[in-house]
Structure formats: C-alpha cells, structure tokens
Design a protein around this nucleic acid. Sequence first.
DNA 1: GGGATCGACTAATGCGCTTTAGAGTGGGCT
DNA 2: AGCCCACTCTAAAGCGCATTAGTCGATCCC
Lengths: 338, 338
Amino acid sequence: MKDIARRAGVSESAVSFALNDRPGVSDVTRDRVRRVAEQLGWHPSTAARALSGEGSATVGLVVARPAGTLGVDSFFLQLISGIQEVLAERQLGLLFQVVEDVAAECAVYQRWWAEHRVDGVLVVDPRTADPRPALLDDLGLPAVVTGGVPDPDAHHTGLSTVWADDAGAMASIVDHLYALGHRRIVHIAGLPGLAHTERRIRTLRAEAQRRDLSEVRSVTTDYSDAQGAAVTRRVLRAASPPTALVYDNDVMAVAGVAAAASLGFAVPGDVSVIAWEDSALCRMVHPWLTALSRDTVSFGRTAARELLSLLDDGPAATVQVPLPTLIERESTGRVAEG
Amino acid sequence: MKDIARRAGVSESAVSFALNDRPGVSDVTRDRVRRVAEQLGWHPSTAARALSGEGSATVGLVVARPAGTLGVDSFFLQLISGIQEVLAERQLGLLFQVVEDVAAECAVYQRWWAEHRVDGVLVVDPRTADPRPALLDDLGLPAVVTGGVPDPDAHHTGLSTVWADDAGAMASIVDHLYALGHRRIVHIAGLPGLAHTERRIRTLRAEAQRRDLSEVRSVTTDYSDAQGAAVTRRVLRAASPPTALVYDNDVMAVAGVAAAASLGFAVPGDVSVIAWEDSALCRMVHPWLTALSRDTVSFGRTAARELLSLLDDGPAATVQVPLPTLIERESTGRVAEG
DNA sequence: GGGATCGACTAATGCGCTTTAGAGTGGGCT
DNA sequence: AGCCCACTCTAAAGCGCATTAGTCGATCCC
C-alpha cells in the first residue's frame, strides 16, 4: 500500500479511502489509485484488515459427525456448494472443520471467536437439547442454524434459523402411503438426538394416531448403509412385516431395497420404499426409488445469505425453505390385496 | 494480552515470551503467566499474529470441478477428513473453496497468497498441461500436489507431490481380467485432462499392446452416473461387445451395472465389472462389485503431513502411497465359453 | 573488589491497514 | 473584503502480537 501511495503521489490514507469507496478523495485520484493498485496486483492483507477492526472476511462451518458417517451421503458437499456460491460474491472465505462431537464443536467456536478467525458461523445438524445456540448467543458470535426447527422457547436473539418443514413433509409421505392402502409403516430414521430426526418421528406418530394406525413406528440408525440394511432385515422378518418403509436418507434406502430383495421381498410388490433425500443413487437401482426431493444447494445458498445479512447488522430471521416434493418413481405402489 | 501482563505483574513482552516457549523468562513466571492466560480464556489473535510475520495458521484447498460432479462420489469428503485430522493437531484451519475451472482456481491462489490468507495449499486433480505448479512455484506459495503423477520434466522446487501408482493399479487390473480370460475390455474413464485419467488410459493401452489385445480401449466421461450408464449402453450394443468393463469410479460402475442389466447382460455372466474406488456403494448393489480399494482418508493425512513439513521449511518430497488393492467380489468372473 | 558474563525482564518498534483529527484550498455568501 | 463551509488530502494513532535492543541486578572469576 505504501508503494501505491508513492506511485500515485498521495498519502496512504488517501489510498485507503480510494480503495474502500470512502468519501474524502476526488474521483480522479480514486481512479488513479485504483489503476496503480491493479497494476501492482495489490490485495489487502486480511490480517491487517482484521486487526484494524474490519473482521476476518471468513465464516466458519464445523460439522460434528463420527468420522465414517460423513462421506456417505452427498448432502454436505451440496450444502457447501451452495454456501460457497453466495460467499464467493463477497470474497468471503469458508473455514471448514470436522470434529468428533458437539463438545469439540463448541470448543472450536470459542477458539475461532477468540482468535478473531471468523466473523460468523453456520451451524448444522441442530439437536434436541442443543448447547450450541446458547453458547453462540453468549459469545455474541453471529450464526445461522440450518436445518433445525425453530425453538419456540428459548429465543436466542442474534441467531438466525433456516429450516425445512420436516413435519409437513412427513405428513405428505404418510398421506401418500395411506392413500395407497398402506397401514403398516416403518420409518428407518437417522441419528437420534438430531432435531429433525426427532421431529420426523414425532410427526409420524401423530399422523398415525390421527388415522388410528397402530403398526407404525420409527427406528433410529446412524445413517449408514449397514444399519439401514440390518434394520430392514429385522423388521421384514417380523411376524407381520410392514408394507412400506420410509428411509431418512438415500443410502439407507438403497441398502434397504437390496436387503429386502435378499429376503425375497419384491419392491414395490411386497413392500413400498420411500427415500428421504433424492440423488443420483435413487435412479441407479431397480426399481427407481420414490424420493423426497429438496434443493440442498439452494438450502446452502439461503443459509449463507442469512449469515451475510446478519454480518451486515441485519435482523436475525427465521426463514423457511420450500417444502420438499415427493417424486414418485417405481418403488411405491398400492398395497397388495389381503 | 495486556490484561494478562497486568494481572501477572509483568510486561507484555514477558507474556509473549512465556506463551511462546521462548527463552528470556523464568519458569515460575512462565507458569504464572500461563495460568492467568488460561483463566482468562485467552487465545492469540490470528490476525495480529499473521501481521507480525507468523503466518496465518491456515491452509487452503480449492477444488475446481463443475458444480454437479462434486457431490457424487465420497472421495472429497474422505480426503478432507484425513487432511483435517492432521491439521487439527496443530490447530491449523482449512480454508475451502470450490470454483468452476482451473483459471478461477489460479486466481484464488493468487488472491489468497497476496492477502496472506493461507500459508500453503493442497492441490487436487492435477491435469495434463497443468498451469498450477508453475504458478505456485512462481508465487512461492508452499503446496503439495495430491493425486498426481510426478512430472519428470519440469521439476518445480518447493512443490511436494503425493501420488498413487495408477499405472501399477491398472496393470494389476488387466492382469486379473486377462487371467480370467477376458480379451475385450472397455475402460470407462473419468474426466479427460486429469493427469491420472490420462495415465490410466496410457497404461491400459500399453498393457493391451504387450498382450497383443486389439479390442481394448478407454472412453472418457465426466464421472457422472448418467454418462457412465450412457457409455455402457453404447459399448454393449456394439457388434462385438466387451466382456469386461472397468469404471473409474464407483458411481459409474453402479450405474453401468444397472444399464447392463437393462440390456439383458448378466453380471458377471456376460460381462465383468470392476470399480476403481471402493465404497459402501459397491456393496449396495447386486452383484457386489469387485473394486479397487484405496485408503482415501490416509491419502489426505499423508498430503497434509507433507504440507506441514513444507511449512516447517522441510524439503519438498515426492511420496507414494500404497498401491490400491483389488477386492474381488461378485462382479468379475471367468469369461463365458466361446 | 571490579569488570565480565549471564539470566530475567522491560521498552520500543514494526507488521499493513483503518480511522480520526486536522491542515490547506478554493468558492459562495453577505 | 471577510467569513464560513465543503472538499481533498495528510499526519498520526492504534489494532494485538513478535521481536530487537536495551536495562538492571546478581553471579563468577582472577
């Protein structure tokens, strides 16, 4: 910057004003400074900038999932793609970290904030009895919680929430299956303790009660194909096996179909299958899977936008993304007679 | 830090010495300062630290792949997991960015380095005629190229390379298939222009020539299930279809099996299938896929270690990771008679 | 006992930028 | 003419840390 000042024949402050679109410098000088800067290939040192109070120009994302369960589904990379797209517009960086558990995640937030490493964070996988919102609120670290259900009780000011209507989606699935004649449904859910898992389970139970269905239940898993297959085998071997299976992700659904086939169950002849989360996977198996499709990339974009708004001292908001739609393919059908 | 100095009754410099394990302060004082620091929950501001010449304590990773092709396979998240594991030991951050193409990637490197945002970068997906090594070398930005083949010609000092022996792996695949009687092989490769894609193709050709096999060839794709399926259909419909298919990733292999089945080809009865890259996917379809398994997480760890060593002013190295092993499952078999 | 030496510590400077206070200049107004 | 203001620019301070030079007192050795 000193170089620029010298070459443009002005003071350093003038350069700063010119480059940051601040008043206090004439247009001709501004242009001249800009040209020199470009010519020199100058970029502001984020370190220096951060030091003088401007923020670090990066946002953080930490995901706490056991090592194995991360790579399985494509959810995260898509989410990140969406986030990036928005952050890139402002040249914000994304600091990424994967940790073992929520405690470690909290530690990372504290450290990052203390180190002035990030200006805000995106929180994923909200949980029941989640310590993170309170922590972030205490720290005063701007954050948007994505994928959660808005917590009506403790409203943490300063936290935005982006959420999908899992309850509505589950209701639409039950509607669909009920209309096809299904009365015995098993929901192979994801990780227990995750807010959306619990919400889906609760909604399923409520919908079942409303229709007086007694043989409807949820089983939690770790999202892995192994558990998806294992649970499928177990429930299909029962005395009165379900006629429909709802899987909380695509990977388990695919594994489940394979497991069902190995037990001699035809899909959708003997048992219907729905995957919560659509992806290429769902069209790579036979039969093609009926799936709940949501736009994860756009989800990431929305979350990032909310965070940006928060960083601009915008108000904390609670925004809901569109209801996912059920794509009917070949894995669901009318329940067999008798 | 001022607070610490005051509370510990020493000067700021003493605090700095104490906290950074530098000489010039007695053990008792060091302990006292440390206790106070901990008590105050102090963490050094990375900004300030970076500003005074210490580096930014973060490494960068940018991947340039068209939006869609990212989330498909689990490769990247596994790689990142491995990288993180090593970086976490030193509390280094990972700055992550996805861009459209290599040009944009280069721009990001320039910017990051100019902004002092990163101390080094990990480069993935090396290409033929790759502009990145030269650029990084020019900039003086420490980097390790992962997944490439060491370039014998232009040896860029300062760049480390971590590579897998794709040639050896391809040779072992051909060995295996040849022993089973296969003479007509099609290799459904990945993105053209990627160094390892080209290397696999060249090796396949060489191996074929060595055995005097004329009906062996490669077809490049974008790694997507769609193209995997399309190419599979095309080659199987030919007059004298191949008896073995080698796919450059798991996703295409699975899609290919489905495509083959839809054309009435039994696997492995009519055509054998090998997936380059093992994952849960390979055990989710029937028949289970024979696959080339490598430890991607460990690959990431190795790459990160090399970068760390580079940041410690270690020598640039070229390290090779273990040869991937062929896991024989159900999708390969002896070629049918006549 | 006095100078040399060493250990423990402090003062002061600089990293690259933003920002506040202030200096200088010209033009419009009465 | 005199005054005030708007405008363009400069000087200087400060962000939080690392580091270099320097201070002070104690120990050591001839």
